[in-house]
Amino acid sequence: MTGEPEPVAPPIFLERRSYRRRRLWDAVRLLPFLGAVLWMVPLMWPMPDGADGQGVSTSSALLYIFAVWVFLAFVARLLWRGTSQTADPPD
């Protein structure tokens, strides 16, 4: 090879840290969808009816929904910690 410059193309594989950062941003983007899915789980809960089941008690429903809530806030905070180093999210 002579001293010709190689054409500059965006690298396909990133080094470990930027790879991790990108996946963190992916998580930031996907988290609301996870939240939506988890919060739509109650749609599948049985309704109390006279015949068989008692349905789901309000206390357990309350626990589930608030647990998801705290979990989402917690993950969002972790992601904020992880991504706050990068000024601009990659598009």
Binding site: P42, P48, Q54, G55, V56, S57, T58, A61, L62
Partner: peptide, 21 residues
């Protein structure tokens, strides 16, 4: 409190799916 919640008039999950969404 949890016990009293379950024992109350709103003690069961009775939210209509459509309204929830």
């Amino acid at each position: 409190t949890m016990a009293r919640i379950d024992a109350s008039a709103i003690g069961r999950w009775e939210v209509e799916g459509g309204r929830w969404v």
